[in-house]
Amino acid sequence: MQIFVKTLTGKTITSEVEPSDTIENVKAKIQDKEGIPPDQQRLIFAGKQLEDGRTLSDYNIQKESTLHLVLR
């Protein structure tokens, strides 16, 4: 499924993921596309910071959901 990751600069990254993918996994995909190390990434969805060990389905993230990427 496709999800969108919006950066603070307003850029939107499209990523191909599975509901069973972990947040860590998603951060790795963002690193592949943007070159941002996962340890600098914080992903936010519905006002919550997403934890690395959890999966997209844990957070009820569905296709075409938009996550927000904040850098630390």
Score class of each variant (00 low, 15 high):
residue 42 R to H: 12
residue 2 Q to F: 13
residue 62 Q to M: 11
residue 58 D to T: 04
residue 40 Q to W: 11
residue 13 I to C: 04
residue 2 Q to T: 15
residue 64 E to F: 14
residue 67 L to E: 00
residue 19 P to V: 08
residue 33 K to A: 13
residue 46 A to Y: 09
residue 44 I to W: 15
residue 7 T to D: 07
residue 11 K to Q: 09
residue 49 Q to R: 09
residue 27 K to W: 04
residue 9 T to D: 13
residue 69 L to D: 00
residue 17 V to K: 01
residue 58 D to P: 00
residue 15 S to A: 15
residue 44 I to H: 09
residue 41 Q to C: 08
residue 69 L to M: 08
residue 10 G to L: 03
residue 55 T to P: 05
residue 32 D to P: 03
residue 39 D to Q: 11
residue 13 I to L: 09
residue 61 I to P: 01
residue 50 L to W: 01
residue 68 H to K: 08
residue 8 L to S: 14
residue 9 T to E: 11
residue 20 S to P: 03
residue 4 F to Q: 05
residue 11 K to H: 11
residue 11 K to D: 07
residue 31 Q to C: 13
residue 2 Q to V: 15
residue 26 V to K: 00
residue 65 S to N: 09
residue 43 L to R: 00
residue 7 T to N: 05
residue 71 L to V: 12
residue 5 V to H: 00
residue 39 D to P: 07
residue 41 Q to H: 05
residue 62 Q to W: 07
residue 16 E to W: 15
residue 36 I to Q: 03
residue 31 Q to W: 15
residue 72 R to M: 13
residue 48 K to E: 12
residue 22 T to H: 04
residue 16 E to Y: 14
residue 53 G to P: 06
residue 72 R to S: 11
residue 57 S to Q: 13
residue 22 T to M: 06
residue 18 E to R: 14
residue 21 D to H: 05
residue 20 S to Q: 10
residue 46 A to N: 15
residue 39 D to H: 12
residue 58 D to W: 13
residue 61 I to E: 01
residue 11 K to A: 08
residue 15 S to G: 06
residue 3 I to E: 02
residue 32 D to G: 10
residue 3 I to M: 02
residue 18 E to F: 14
residue 2 Q to G: 06
residue 70 V to I: 13
residue 53 G to A: 10
residue 12 T to W: 10
residue 26 V to P: 01
residue 51 E to P: 02
residue 27 K to D: 00
residue 65 S to I: 04
residue 68 H to F: 14
residue 62 Q to H: 10
residue 11 K to S: 07
residue 65 S to H: 06
residue 3 I to W: 01
residue 48 K to P: 01
residue 53 G to C: 08
residue 61 I to L: 03
residue 67 L to Y: 00
residue 12 T to R: 08
residue 66 T to E: 06
residue 48 K to T: 11
residue 35 G to W: 03
residue 29 K to W: 13
residue 2 Q to K: 14
residue 46 A to M: 14
residue 23 I to Y: 00
residue 11 K to W: 10
residue 23 I to R: 00
residue 59 Y to K: 00
residue 42 R to L: 15
residue 60 N to A: 08
residue 61 I to R: 01
residue 35 G to D: 05
residue 62 Q to F: 10
residue 28 A to L: 14
residue 45 F to Q: 01
residue 12 T to H: 05
residue 42 R to M: 15
residue 69 L to Y: 02
residue 49 Q to K: 09
residue 9 T to C: 14
residue 43 L to A: 01
residue 49 Q to E: 15
residue 1 M to Q: 03
residue 39 D to I: 10
residue 25 N to D: 12
residue 14 T to F: 09
residue 57 S to N: 09
residue 26 V to Q: 01
residue 30 I to T: 02
residue 19 P to H: 06
